[in-house]
Design a protein around this nucleic acid. Structure first.
Lengths: 105, 105
DNA sequence: TACTAATATAATTATTTACTTATATAATGA
DNA sequence: TCATTATATAAGTAAATAATTATATTAGTA
């Protein structure tokens, strides 16, 4: 049940960035496509794309393609301690309401 | 009950380093003085001292001086989610047994 | 097939940060 | 007071990394 210190450090590095932590907070609400996330976080698409890649490689998110959109979802399966961390973050519900209705349509 | 994202990021940065994470794993077992930690981690005293300063500033450890030694102890009071993270780390009990008996004496 | 939209990748740059070496401070004891 | 031990601080360097800009890939559609 105990992880190696090295792999835990790698996971903590993923969480030690505001953009990535906010992405995880968003995905806690619901799965989202890249354009949704770019919309909310006010940064560039390549920036989000690179952060998502890191989160995916670290096993924190899963991706599914549905036609031209790629949806990302939170994966806490093998990291139960994530729940306690993400619980600390403020709710992102307000941001979800502001989503561009033309995104992923 | 929810922290700001910024302050959570700062805490995650503190955890995203192998030396600091190992220090926390050690302090989970018992409070220790600087020379104990230097002994176990095979690095230099200034290096440990600087890591301890960061952990202290981030509120993750407390320090107490007892004559010429300064003891550090884990402080999870306002960060309950730390428990779940540190639980993932391997036990440090073996390292404690190897401690130099002349340290802090 | 050509065009557009969504997303990923590559290369560059600037910032952050861990570690090292040298030095300073603080406490103890002769 | 002087010497020693424990710890902290300062300055410099090298490595890691987030963001930007440009370009590539993939899917859908006319």
């Amino acid at each position: 049940m105990t992880e190696t210190t090295d792999s835990l450090v790698e996971t903590m590095k993923l969480l030690a960035d505001k953009t990535r932590l906010t992405i995880l907070a968003l995905l806690k609400e619901k799965e989202m496509c890249v354009c949704d996330i770019v919309d909310i976080l006010h940064t560039t698409q390549p920036n989000i794309s690179q952060h998502l890649k890191k989160l995916k490689n670290g096993g924190l998110v899963l991706e599914t393609r549905r036609s031209q959109w790629i949806y990302y979802s939170l994966n806490m399966d093998d990291k139960p301690y994530l729940q306690g961390i993400l619980k600390e973050l403020p709710s992102m519900k307000d941001e979800l309401n502001k989503l561009n209705p033309n995104c992923c349509k």
